[in-house]
Write a protein that binds this DNA or RNA. Structure first.
Lengths: 151, 151
DNA sequence: ACAGGATGGTTCAAATCTGAACAACAAGTA
DNA sequence: TACTTGTTGTTCAGATTTGAACCATCCTGT
């Protein structure tokens, strides 16, 4: 650990800004979703991921990877969403160990009802404040990191 | 809510990439800090903020704002760090309600010991993968959002 | 066919986070 | 001075997250 590479001003500014902003935005989103629909952000993301799928269903593990939560957290949230009638569990045809999380009609309607308010927040604080160039640079930058982290 | 402005491909890609990456990176950092020093990321950030200060102390509320956690979460973590001997509480001279969180010598040494490994992660997955331009664009972009959220 | 090792999902205990309620103090006003 | 309003930090209950332990099932090579 002798030769530590500290961050210079540019690097530190970028890192600090990224860190604070991601936390602040997360808090704001959580607050909006809770007030508008009694949903947490992970719960909302689960609905989105399922809705994005052709048959509105996905394996537990894949879903957990997509939403970026632990397997146990996903189990907990799916149980929660199941009780709310937004998601159902189904046995996987091709693998007896597998469990499919399936978006219900009520879940789809809930998502359609909640999405506008959520997107309004994402726009108001992030998307609408950035130029086209900034959006594109951010995407390439984030993807480099994301790719490195998914391994 | 009739006229919903959905996100186009560029916007959605940016938002998704940002979201996934921030969560993945958070997980990775948490894992590294836990393994290297038994610290959580918020705990580490508390030490950093205090160390950045001239007299290594800060009011609870200001610290909570900086680290972006709730007041109660900060109370909890400061108590935790106090038990570990890394931080002390002091009464605020100018305000009897106030509490100062003070970084101890042990806390400073702990930070100096842990920082290299932490920064190595930040570099390996984020900073070192981005060009100078990308770093600068990210900073301006993040700051616009951060500023909007701090109000 | 079968042993051995991976993978999928759940359960469990422990830690942490949040918002609401609260008590003590501050600061300005009549 | 007495009142009112706002701020500070803590406590509390409830919800959520994580990793480890676990069992069931899959898959591969022999």
């Amino acid at each position: 650990m002798t030769d530590t590479r500290w961050l210079d001003d540019t690097e530190m500014a970028a890192w600090r800004a990224f860190l604070s902003t991601s936390h602040l935005l997360e808090r704001r989103i959580e607050e909006q979703l809770k007030a508008a629909a009694g949903l947490t952000h992970p719960q909302y993301e689960i609905l989105v991921r399922l809705a994005d799928t052709p048959d509105r269903q996905m394996r537990m593990t894949e879903l957990a990877r997509g939403v970026v939560v632990s397997k146990s957290a996903l189990t907990y949230q799916i149980t929660r969403l199941e009780k709310a009638g937004l998601v159902e569990r189904a046995t996987c045809p091709s693998d007896d160990r597998g469990v499919l999380a399936v978006l219900t009609e009520a879940g789809m309607r809930c998502l359609e009802r909640v999405a506008p308010g959520h997107l309004a927040v994402v726009r108001a604080y992030l998307v609408d404040r950035l130029t086209r160039d900034e959006l594109e640079v951010m995407t390439t930058a984030m993807r480099k990191t994301e790719r490195a982290l998914r391994e």
